[in-house]
């Protein structure tokens, strides 16, 4: 795997973060620390506040309490466009591309902060990483399949060589085989190359397989956290996320 696409990771740290909409907290007092070379995953049932937490870390949702930092710099409630300049790449769960723009234009917007002469070079690097996109450069992003679209969304954030990748359910709506490839080959690969990866994932079992540390959210709070092996031995976790009907 090419390692030039991302740069050496920085620590993304959230301390006692509460965040939500219209002054009402959805998540309460969350502590997270994602470090370089590691995948930290967040799992939990729908409505547990996973996406809200990620959005608050990247400036999309206001932080109502606590603090967030990247590489020791406080980014609490810093606008998203400034957080992007600090090496944090964010792929949202939905609306992760610009549908009316072509694949090439999506990548160009991903490289918006780069000097003009570097954009073309970076697109070349991203295309080496996701060669399937090569043949689709003039196609509108809205016409891509789920897997192609997710590759483009990842490619877009890689344009800025992020040191921290924040990914919100990157496998949502993907076929199982594509989801496994995305998680095990690409996302784990970023961490192995030295990046920091913070991942929200519905497929708990798959998330555990690639993670170094996992948080379990419930009702907007951390209800469990630990190394994947330890969680896999925890009967409460197994019952809720890995066993019976909840197994994904």
């Amino acid at each position: 795997m090419s390692v030039e696409l991302s740069t050496q990771g920085q620590v993304l740290s959230a301390s006692q973060v509460s965040a939500g909409y219209d002054g009402r907290a959805i998540v309460h007092g969350i502590d997270v620390e994602a470090t370089p070379g590691r995948v930290v995953s967040i799992v939990g049932p729908n409505g547990s506040g996973k996406s809200t937490l990620l959005k608050s870390l990247v400036g999309v949702v206001p932080v109502l309490g606590g603090s967030v930092s990247v590489g020791g710099t406080d980014i609490t409630n810093v606008p998203p466009e400034r957080i992007a300049t600090m090496g944090v790449g964010y792929v949202p769960q939905v609306d992760d591309v610009f549908p009316p723009l072509t694949v090439k234009e999506n990548l160009e917007i991903g490289g918006y902060l780069l000097p003009r002469h570097q954009v073309h070079e970076r697109i070349g690097a991203v295309l080496e990483f996701f060669p399937r996109l090569k043949k689709m450069m003039t196609r509108k992003a809205g016409k891509l399949s789920g897997g192609e679209r997710k590759m483009l969304a990842m490619g877009r954030v890689l344009m800025l060589s992020p040191s921290v990748l924040v990914l919100d359910e990157p496998t949502a709506n993907l076929a199982p085989l594509v989801a496994t490839q995305l998680l095990e080959e690409y996302i784990r690969g970023f961490a192995d190359a030295g990046s920091t990866v913070l991942l929200v994932e519905q497929r708990a079992k798959a998330a555990l397989r690639i993670s170094d540390w996992t948080l379990v959210l419930g009702g907007g709070r951390v209800v469990l956290s630990g190394r994947p092996d330890d969680l896999a031995d925890n009967p409460v976790f197994v019952e809720s996320f890995l066993g019976g009907g909840a197994h994904r």
Binding site: V60, P92, F98, L113, L160
Partner: peptide, 10 residues
């Protein structure tokens, strides 16, 4: 097309 994503892209 997507103001939030545009902001996240810088």
């Amino acid at each position: 097309a997507n103001p939030n994503l545009a902001r996240n892209s810088g």
